[in-house]
């Protein structure tokens, strides 16, 4: 658990975690709108060496970032309404694939998240501070 005081620091936390990431890892991100989830993924992509632009996949459902040490599959469950839709976008095929999967709003379909996933919780502590729990239990 640590407190990030800026978007840049949240990004830094992602970049730092990237060093320990290996193929097949799954990161399940939880936190409200504006808590820093996408910002964290930006850092993760940078840390893995991808130069691709990281933006929110809320509408596009899945973004892939290549060019780094591992491919990153950036999911967003925010707009997904049911498990059917989740399978339709190929979630199960990707999450057990060769890259690292990062899932925003993972708690919306917690049952679909593989057991080896690492849960990361983002909380808004104040207007400029975010509490990031890098080993949350759910």
């Amino acid at each position: 658990m640590f407190i990030s005081v800026s978007a840049a620091e949240t990004e830094g936390a992602g970049a730092h975690l990237a060093e320990k990431i290996k193929a097949g890892d799954v990161l399940a991100l939880v936190g409200d709108l504006g808590a820093g989830k996408t910002q964290f993924v930006k850092g993760l992509a940078r840390g893995l060496g991808s130069k691709e632009a990281v933006t929110s996949p809320t509408f596009t459902l899945l973004h892939e970032y290549r060019g780094g040490r591992l491919p990153i599959y950036h999911f967003d469950f925010y707009r997904i309404e049911n498990l059917t839709a989740l399978w339709a976008i190929g979630f199960d095929e990707t999450v057990f694939g060769d890259g690292v999967s990062v899932i925003e709003w993972a708690d919306r379909f917690g049952d679909a998240i593989p057991p080896h996933a690492r849960w990361i919780r983002f909380e808004i502590a104040s207007e400029s501070q975010r509490r990031i729990d890098l080993s949350a239990l759910t």
Binding site: T84, W87, A88, I89, G90, E93
Partner: peptide
Amino acid sequence: SQIAAHEKFGGVVPELASRN
């Protein structure tokens, strides 16, 4: 839309991507 399709096809959960 996906929703309409699921109603039409009886709400079967497709196991494969892009079955819709």
